[in-house]
Amino acid sequence: RGFLEKAAVKKMAKAIMADPNKADEVYKKWADKGYTLTQMSNFLKSKTAGKYDRVYNGYVIHLD
């Protein structure tokens, strides 16, 4: 289950990176699912340092 969630989160993160207008909708879905910042950090780990920082930081702001 965790692997599928991670894959889904990364897919949506890539969608945000391609079209930032989708961010609020995606952040709301993640918040509704109760994803914590720790979970998001783990889901968005990448071999490329900083690749998903913008998405993660946007989610931090959304939760605030």
Rank of each mutant, 00 (worst) to 15 (best):
G2R: 12
G2V: 13
L4H: 12
E5Q: 08
K6T: 11
A7Y: 12
A7G: 07
A8C: 15
V9E: 01
V9T: 03
K10D: 03
K10V: 14
K10M: 09
K11L: 11
M12H: 05
A13T: 02
K14R: 14
K14E: 14
K14M: 11
A15K: 07
A15V: 11
A15D: 06
I16D: 00
M17D: 04
D19L: 04
D19P: 01
P20E: 07
P20Q: 09
N21P: 05
N21V: 08
K22P: 01
K22M: 14
K22Y: 08
D24T: 12
D24C: 15
E25P: 04
V26N: 04
V26P: 00
K28W: 04
K29T: 12
K29P: 00
W30Q: 00
W30E: 00
A31H: 13
A31Y: 09
D32W: 07
G34C: 08
G34Y: 02
Y35A: 02
Y35H: 03
Y35S: 00
T38D: 11
T38Y: 09
T38I: 11
Q39N: 05
Q39I: 08
M40R: 00
M40F: 01
S41K: 15
N42L: 10
F43K: 02
L44C: 03
L44I: 03
L44Y: 01
L44W: 01
K45D: 10
K45G: 08
T48V: 11
T48D: 11
A49C: 13
K51R: 07
K51N: 06
K51D: 05
K51P: 05
K51E: 13
Y52A: 02
Y52S: 02
D53S: 06
D53C: 10
D53W: 07
D53E: 09
R54S: 15
R54M: 15
V55R: 00
Y56P: 00
Y56C: 05
N57L: 13
N57G: 07
N57R: 12
G58Y: 03
Y59L: 02
V60F: 06
V60A: 14
V60D: 03
V60S: 08
I61M: 14
L63A: 03
L63Q: 04
D64L: 15
D64S: 15
D64W: 09
